[in-house]
Design a protein around this nucleic acid. Sequence first.
DNA 1: CCACTAACCTGTAGGC
DNA 2: TGCCTACAGGTTAGTG
Length: 294
Amino acid sequence: MPELPEVETVRRSLAPYVEGALIESVKLNRKDLRTPFPRGFAKALEGKTIERIERRAKYLLFRLSSGKTWIAHLGMTGSFRFKDITLDKQSRYFEPVTDEKHDHVVVGLKHPKRGRLTMIFADARRFGTMNLIETDEASAEIGDLGPEPLSNQFNAAEMADRFKNKATPVKAALLDQRVVAGLGNIYVSEALHRARIRPTVEAKKLVLKSGAPSRRLEDLAAAIPTVLTEAIEFGGSTLRDFRSGDGAEGSFQHRFAVYDREGKPCPTPGCTGTIKRIVQSGRSTYYCPVCQKP
DNA sequence: CCACTAACCTGTAGGC
DNA sequence: TGCCTACAGGTTAGTG
């Protein structure tokens, strides 16, 4: 479900409710998600204040008053929502969730302005993870991540460095979180289409002999933050069940050029191509065989 | 170290 | 309606 734009959408939707809130209680309905909750996880959160909620790649980072960070990954189907509160007007899309069998974490909050709130983490497939780390230390989760694509650290030269020895298809290289952090199956296909690069091209072919990025790689490095920023502006993409913290669906799925559009016409102006679906490393890739060059 | 596959787990859509 | 298969936004252990 969630790639960088969806996680950022969740972060923004949670921020007004959690920042400044005291964690009064934490109830775990099972002992693990994809990985076990760390020992003493619930007790370590209780009594602490969430000072800020930040994001790194696809991870949510709840910065706590204890100097620790509660780190959460949504996996494929993870979601946060609130229960028993009056939602703001912009939350008009919210529909109460009646099926609670996948509610794994229930957090009781006391917000200085909003009062008591119940925040629930649900995750049907349980590919999500939660952990507690020291705020000022790199953790196993986020220590090896590549550059954040929406930061000024991210540029074509940086990508060229990471691509230069890779014979793997550029699709796979972009999914590797150590190369670029935050892209997933949707936005890799969309970014490659914008850069007019076929997903099967070897990553190193986009790097010049001198080690500098090719013109095509510069296009790709520009397309990545552009498509991610646009997707955030539309609240991310909802394919099946993605919802932000206030229950709203994303709408960027209506603006996909290639993802999940097999057999449909390529939207590039003047292009006569038809979107094709192939499988790379076990996952669907969508592209236009006419305007995305090998 | 790198690259690739299978596995984790549940829900749903589509074919028959 | 039911049964079966394929597939789904992600990561990572295991293998070569």
